[in-house]
């Protein structure tokens, strides 16, 4: 079966309803279509969550990067930097940062590692670009899923219409 780059299968498009309906009953076909559509919707939901988490992560990386870039600008000068740093959500305290060549990055899993400013910038930039790529892919997948859901919906509507028409013709034939 054909699939997109992340292995999500393509929905089958019904080219000719008459042909298609030769093999299966209307009920079975509609059930099959609904099932496929709900599978796509399930995937869509999980991708939406993935997108939301990336959209949150990216600004956080950008913030860290902005600070590292600021400290890089200050590097080499003998002046310390006066700051107000966040102790808690609504609580800030004064802090003086002496001239520095290094920063500590929080890596997760309760680990913090000291990096030179250049290394930190490199690491954060690469994290940022990876996150942005993942976000782009998630959006691509979401658009792809939307396409597949639309196809299944159009398929459903057409089979349904086809059935309504067939029933009416049968009725007309009987009463005639």
């Amino acid at each position: 079966m054909e699939a997109n780059p992340r292995g999500i299968p393509k929905a089958p498009f019904v080219d000719n309803v008459d042909q298609y309906m030769k093999t299966d009953t209307v009920e079975a076909t509609l059930r099959k279509f609904t099932e496929a559509a709900s599978k796509y919707r399930f995937m869509e939901n999980s991708k939406l969550q993935q997108r939301a988490s990336l959209e949150q992560k990216i600004p956080e990386i950008e913030k860290s990067l902005a600070m590292v870039e600021f400290l890089t600008e200050k590097r080499g000068s003998d002046q310390s930097v006066e700051t107000l740093f966040e102790v808690n959500d609504t609580l800030y305290a004064h802090a003086t940062i002496p001239p520095t060549d290094t920063v500590n990055l929080w890596l997760g899993a309760n680990v913090m590692l000291e990096y030179t400013l250049d290394e930190a910038q490199e690491l954060l930039s690469s994290k940022l670009s990876i996150a942005k790529t993942s976000l782009k892919e998630a959006i691509e997948d979401l658009e792809f899923l939307r396409d597949q859901i639309t196809i299944m919906e159009v398929n459903t509507a057409r089979v349904y219409n086809w059935d309504v028409k067939r029933r009416r013709m049968e009725k007309d034939a009987v009463s005639a």
Binding site: A66, V81, E82, T83, L84, E86, Y92, A95
Partner: peptide
């Protein structure tokens, strides 16, 4: 005080 990241820098 100018906000860079989560901190304010004077």
């Amino acid at each position: 005080p100018y906000k860079i990241g989560d901190a304010f820098v004077m």
